[in-house]
Write a protein that binds this DNA or RNA. Structure first.
Lengths: 185, 185
DNA sequence: CTTATCATGTAATCGGTTACATGATTAC
DNA sequence: GTAATCATGTAACCGATTACATGATAAG
């Protein structure tokens, strides 16, 4: 899969001026159930995008030469064009790697007790993500129509929430099944 | 994430003697909603595992020197130990990349028509995977208890099916919503 | 005063895909 | 006979993480 780092950055900057650090935080907190990027990808890509003039520095309107270090970026016209073009291209195949599901798939009764532990952790992580998503959803619902992409975000978020609910109920059910069979066989 | 290629191979070989090609096919057809590996990972790893004596060649019992080229592997005692140890270790964080969801998340009404196209494709892929999973499920149900890991596989498969059903119904609903709003705004 | 978070960037390394190369066997 | 699939392996390249390095600011 060709790297998509630039499009994530451009897509986020279309809605709001951000620093590299904020971009990373946003991806981690709000998009991690379908995407991730690391600092080692984001910062070099920001420099490349600057050179290609797809983004530019967003200087604060008033107090120009103040002490703040962080540089905030905004998207340019060419940046918007590149973003739009990508939006129209076909999608590459998803890449997924879940070590937990891999283990569940390959397990036998010999590994039953460990799988129960993994299920507990799997369930906990689902609950944790659900909490985070619900918070984000409330935040979005508070100022809906602020940006016209909020309804798209809300739809993806709704999917993420349903997905995590599925993971939680599945792991709970699986756990009960393994427990009812008896501790060791 | 450290590479897990060896554990997938060992896990599959615990249940059945397989060739590298068959391992790849199995991962592609049955595990692709939570895992993937390429030939470029599998074949070199098979050689490494041979050197480490975690797997060995499984020669056919009868007709020894026949013309077949493909080498079938089986797991050794040390291989089983390594597999068991991995089963007990903590899981690393999942890695996921879905270009479709990324686009939906970053879209605005400017991209509405393209998103509708992507939704059609998203839905089609969901249906396709569902079909594949249902086939596999029937196959497993036919000879349940052949291996004692079938019940674990069936549980993961049940999750995969529910997940794809969710993706299908979500994309259908989202599609209808975008269509009812009117073609262009 | 010290810990946590904000903030940026580079380099080494590892993980993973893709292309290349080759050839056998099976199905039509 | 020829196309598809089976089958194996290597090498080049790209993608991505991690560690390293540095320093500012905010909170307790």
């Amino acid at each position: 899969m060709l790297k998509k780092t630039r499009y994530v950055i451009l897509g986020l900057l279309r809605e709001e001026k951000m620093t590299g650090y904020e971009i990373k935080k946003c991806i981690d907190q709000r998009m991690r159930f379908f995407w991730q990027e690391s600092f080692g990808q984001i910062y070099p890509e920001l420099l490349t995008l600057m050179r290609e003039e797809l983004i530019r520095e967003a200087f604060p309107k008033s107090k120009e030469g103040n002490k703040r270090e962080s540089t905030r970026y905004e998207i340019t016209e060419s940046g918007l064009a590149v973003l739009k073009h990508w939006m129209e291209t076909e999608n590459e195949k998803d890449t997924v790697r879940s070590e937990a599901l891999l283990k569940f798939f390959l397990a036998t009764d010999e590994n039953k007790e460990e799988m129960k532990q993994h299920l507990v952790e799997f369930h906990r992580q689902g609950k944790e993500k659900l909490l985070l998503f619900e918070l984000f959803k409330e935040e979005l619902n508070r100022d809906i129509d602020k940006h016209n992409n909020h309804k798209y975000i809300l739809e993806v978020l709704a999917l993420g929430i349903k997905e995590q609910e599925l993971y939680c109920s599945w792991s709970k059910h699986f756990m009960e099944k393994l427990t009812l069979e008896g501790g060791e066989e």
